[in-house]
Structure formats: C-alpha cells, structure tokens
Nucleic acid binder design. Structure first.
Lengths: 148, 148
DNA sequence: TTAAATAGGACTAGAATAGTCCAGAATTAT
DNA sequence: ATAATTCTGGACTATTCTAGTCCTATTTAA
C-alpha cells in the first residue's frame, strides 16, 4: 500500500497546528487540541526535535516551536524524521547485505524511482499543507534532470 | 522509511527475469533462478495473475507469462497488485473512518502528494527496469496538471 | 524548593508481513 | 486410465514492525 506510518501522519497534523499557531506550545496543549494521546505526542515531538524540525525549551513555561519557516520544512524532511531515509527498497539505502544478487541487476533503476519520489516529497512544504485552497505551485519534476 | 514490502520487491525481480526470458516459465524455475523460496514465489505469482499482470497455464508444461509487453506494465501496477491501492495516508483511500477531524483539515493537499507519487510510479515501466543503462526517458510530471 | 516541562530510553501489546503448507483442479504424458 | 506436473485457493504460523505507554532524569520558572 506504500503507506506512511501513523506517527508520520500525526506529525503532519501536529506540525500543521503549530504552523498556524506560530507561538511556542507545550506537548500537553497539542495533545488536547489534536486529540492524540500525550505520550504519543511527546514521542513524535522528540523525534522532530532530533531532526531539527522543532526546537524545544525545557522547564516550566517550556514547549516546542518550529525551527524555521513552514515554507522551509518539506514533507520529505518530516517523513525522514519519523521513518528514517526515504527509499522504497532496502538496497537503495545500503547495498551491503543484498543476497539477491543472482536475479537482481535492477538497483540502478530503482534509485531513479526513489529519487523521483524523493523530489516530489521535497517539493511540498508545511506551508503547502496548511494552505486552505488546494492550488499548488507549478512544480516540475524532470526525471532526466536527476542525471545531470 | 516509506518502504515497499519485501514481496513487492521480489515481484520486480521476478518480473524482470520474466521480461528478459520472454517465454512461459514455471514457478519452480523462477524459484531456482532468483533464489526465492518456491512457496513465496507461488504466492507472488498468484497475486500477479489476479491483477492480470501475468497469465497462467495449468497442468504439466504449464507456467506463467507476462500478460502484455514490459512497456505496458508500470511499477504502479505491480505495487498495486501486491499491496493494494497506492496511497500514503489512509484517508486518501476512504475518508469515512477519520476520527482526527479536530486538527485535520489537511486532506486535500495530501491527495496532491499522493497523485504526484502515483504519477511517478505510473511513468516507470518494467521495460525501464530491465534497461541495462540507466538512461530514462524524458518524463515530466507537472503537478498542476493534475488539476486540469 | 516546588512545580512544570522536556529528554531519553525501556517496555508491552497488537497488527501487519513474510513465509509455509495442504487439498483441489487442470493439463499433459505414458 | 493413470500418473505426473503445475497452478489455485485458502488456512495457518512465526516473525517483525508499529503504536502506544511508562518511568526516571534533567532543566527552568516562580
């Protein structure tokens, strides 16, 4: 089904809320607003801090805030933060453990597909996600440009 | 990680072999060549027959063959055969069970991303996968064209 | 000093995936 | 006819992954 994990899905909901809010917010507040359980919200926020998508402030009156403008946070970055490197196949990440050597001379072309998808996800930002009307920027993804 | 299931990965290996082979082949032969266990190969082949990517002949001297030219079998079709509809989020498939109503006014823009990725996967065929040199056709995916 | 937050990690339960196996049906060869 | 070969369909198991929770430590404000 080529699906995103539930946590990544939550992350986009949380980030969209934060992008609209603009000010620092505490995990508890996010949990209350989104309806996602607090421990789960915390887990996601921690990942996003580690990926430098968010910055955190500890202690009383602490909380989380976007590390940069919504326009500068791509969907690819968010997925990466929660699920690791974006790649459809294992071998696209590392070719070391591939025992399928016999029938598999595919590698190179999968990386083409991976890059195409990565580009697609890189081209959509948090700002696009919160844009009320669905009128995307003109975005072209010339596959062959990946090789220049 | 946005990954493809292992079975889908196997499927591309199997189909690549079949595309090169051109003639009808038995499941056992495929298993032998690819190194994938026979029961697993069978399972995958069955799915591909159901999706009309392959045709099968039963009985002695039976086997499997591509249902159409490699150029006419897209990666999207293969993924679809093994994993169901291509969509990053649940709600892109059906919006009925979405309890996240509170924080979620995202829907529309996700479908944009989904379509972009679907187009990317639709544009790569089995023929591209077996092409030895990685020199893809010029493929443009204008996102906004999805809305015309 | 206390309360309010985040940080880090361990842990559990449940779901999904991968993989196997078997009984049945179709076709060919003997 | 009978046997051998090969796909069909589905049930089943084991393993892995994901989601979700919880606990302890650390930091900061009042």
């Amino acid at each position: 089904m080529l699906r995103l994990s539930k946590l990544t899905d939550y992350a986009t909901v949380i980030l969209s809320f934060m992008a609209r809010e603009k000010t620092q917010v505490a995990a508890m507040e996010i949990a209350a607003v989104t309806g996602i359980a607090l421990p789960t919200v915390s887990k996601i926020l921690k990942s996003l801090v580690n990926a430098e998508v968010l910055v955190s402030t500890r202690g009383a009156k602490g909380g989380y805030a976007l590390a940069r403008m919504p326009e500068e946070i791509s969907v690819a970055t968010v997925i990466n933060a929660l699920e690791g490197p974006i790649a459809l196949t294992e071998c696209s990440i590392s070719h070391q453990g591939c025992e399928q050597a016999l029938g598999c001379d595919i590698g190179g072309n999968w990386s083409l597909i991976n890059q195409t998808i990565h580009n697609a996800l890189e081209s959509v930002t948090l700002a696009d996600l919160i844009r009320p009307a669905v009128l995307p920027n003109e975005v072209f993804i010339p596959v062959s440009s990946l090789y220049r």
